[in-house]
Amino acid sequence: MRIEGSFDIALPRAAVYGHLTDPGLIAACIPGCDQIERISPTDYRARVTIGMGGIKASFNLVVEVTSEQPPERVLSQTRGEEGSRASMLAADNEVALEEIDAANTRVSYVSDVSVTGRLGKFALGVMKKKVESLGREFAERLRERIQIQPAASSAPEAVPQ
């Protein structure tokens, strides 16, 4: 499934890029992410727990940053499993930063995710909605943490779609 979204941040693009490549900050913004560690210059290990309708899944993920093009673009791949390989997850991710103006940046993300195993059998349509809502929550948390001064009404809140 393809997960897409975008959100705006009231900071210059280079500053946003710096934050987005800070694993500790990113981990704190990912809903359900309770640990992250850097295992090589380009690889991170993370654990993310999601729950829906009484189902709980804790994924052990490895994120490999495959291409960094500061301050515009980061490409990465995510691989992982949950529940001693009951489900496998693989995703190709792209995060792109676009300058709205000198002080505002639009962050767009696209992720092509495949889930196989027990969770792959469950309501994929709804799972996509769940992941999209996690994306919106991530955007809100990130904005809260890195926007020193929320740009009041000058920057209308983007509704990620």
């Binding site: 009484g54 189902i55 027990r118 969770l119 059998k121 469950f122």
Partner: peptide, 8 residues
């Protein structure tokens, strides 16, 4: 049905 599918 959810137990059988190993979801819970």
């Amino acid at each position: 049905a959810m137990i059988n599918a190993r979801l819970i």
